[in-house]
Simulated scan of single mutants.
Amino acid sequence: MDLLPLRYFQVVARHEHISRAAVELRVSQPSLSRTIARLEKELGVPLFDRQGRQIRLNSYGAAFLARVDRALRELDDGRQELSDTAGPVRGSVAVASETLLTLASSLPGFRTKYPDVDVRLYQSSGAVMQERLRRGEVDLGLASQRIDDPALETAEVLRDEVLLAVPTGHPLASRTSARITDLAGEPVVTTTGEFWLRQLLDRLFAAAGQCPNIVCEGNELGATAFLISMGLGVGFVPVMAARYDQAGVTFLRVEAPDCYRVLTFAWRRDAYLSVAAQRFRDHTTESLRSEARN
């Protein structure tokens, strides 16, 4: 069986839309439709249910997709493994992270050390990151929370304390620490629920018997301190982010247990991790730990 129709089938199955798949594959819609039709004829069963222009992966297609994903992943891993043994570190590594600021300081050093490795970054919530890892869309995920997924291998990078950020001039700004009960009724700036920062906030407030007064929630964790500096409210910021100059913000210790994030690298347990990805993981781990020590 030719591999190209299988790769086309993967993309169509992911989009469940011929025209969107054709755009990604850079082929014409009629050509893609004919390729899928020939594949179905060869297999002897339809892979999609069709209603007008709508297509949906059916039970045959879902079962076949699982096999196709596994087979093509093995072939791709085999090709990468051979490439890794044939010469210097080269290729590409795709990395997902909940906030790209976490990777910013380590990237220049990695590019200098491994100029032949192309790095692609994707911002993703924890749940989306795990799904991308399982589908093989990224090689590594750098999560800010513990990952409990039997399909993934993990390695803890470090534990980063989380501070309370308040606008300069706020009544709490003259203190060195604060309790969650001190924030009763305070406007809070945070993220939406799929990100670790909101999950930490909800856990700490619940443990203190409080309900946060959330006035601003978004998907960009790196913007939290800036929004606080504008006077929108108070919020949580990890130590590593607090080290960047944040004019108009004062940081306090939080008097609560487990007020930290756990930076963790994750990758697929059943897949070959390329040398480029291993080098990226190891370089970034050492860079982040060195930054935390300093």
Rank of each mutant, 00 (worst) to 15 (best):
94 A>I: 11
95 V>R: 02
96 A>R: 03
97 S>I: 02
97 S>H: 08
98 E>T: 12
100 L>S: 14
100 L>W: 07
101 L>Y: 08
102 T>G: 08
103 L>S: 09
103 L>V: 07
103 L>C: 11
104 A>G: 14
105 S>N: 05
105 S>H: 06
106 S>M: 15
107 L>G: 00
107 L>Q: 09
108 P>L: 04
108 P>W: 05
109 G>D: 04
109 G>P: 05
110 F>D: 05
110 F>G: 08
110 F>P: 03
111 R>I: 06
111 R>A: 09
111 R>K: 08
112 T>V: 03
112 T>E: 10
112 T>Q: 12
113 K>M: 05
114 Y>V: 10
114 Y>A: 07
114 Y>M: 06
115 P>C: 14
115 P>I: 08
116 D>S: 14
116 D>V: 03
118 D>I: 07
119 V>G: 08
122 Y>R: 12
122 Y>D: 13
122 Y>K: 08
122 Y>G: 01
123 Q>C: 09
125 S>L: 04
126 G>R: 05
126 G>S: 11
127 A>M: 09
128 V>R: 15
128 V>L: 05
129 M>H: 02
129 M>Q: 14
129 M>A: 15
129 M>L: 13
131 E>N: 13
131 E>P: 04
131 E>L: 05
132 R>L: 13
133 L>M: 04
133 L>G: 05
134 R>E: 13
135 R>S: 15
136 G>D: 07
136 G>F: 12
138 V>H: 03
138 V>S: 07
138 V>W: 00
139 D>A: 13
139 D>Q: 13
140 L>I: 10
140 L>V: 01
141 G>N: 11
141 G>M: 14
141 G>S: 12
141 G>A: 13
141 G>L: 14
143 A>W: 06
144 S>N: 15
145 Q>K: 09
145 Q>D: 12
145 Q>F: 13
147 I>T: 15
148 D>N: 11
149 D>E: 13
149 D>K: 06
150 P>Q: 12
152 L>T: 10
152 L>Y: 08
153 E>V: 05
153 E>Y: 01
154 T>R: 02
155 A>V: 10
157 V>L: 00
157 V>E: 07
158 L>G: 00
161 E>M: 06
161 E>G: 06
162 V>S: 02
166 V>D: 03
166 V>E: 01
167 P>C: 03
167 P>R: 00
167 P>A: 03
169 G>K: 04
173 A>S: 15
175 R>D: 06
175 R>P: 05
176 T>E: 14
176 T>C: 04
176 T>P: 01
177 S>E: 12
178 A>K: 09
179 R>Q: 13
180 I>V: 15
180 I>T: 08
180 I>D: 03
184 A>L: 02
184 A>S: 09
184 A>E: 12
185 G>T: 11
185 G>Q: 14
185 G>M: 05
186 E>R: 06
186 E>V: 02
187 P>Y: 07
187 P>K: 07
188 V>R: 04
188 V>A: 02
188 V>M: 00
189 V>L: 02
189 V>P: 02
190 T>F: 01
190 T>A: 03
191 T>E: 05
191 T>V: 03
192 T>L: 09
192 T>D: 02
192 T>M: 11
193 G>R: 09
193 G>F: 07
193 G>H: 10
194 E>D: 07
194 E>S: 08
196 W>M: 14
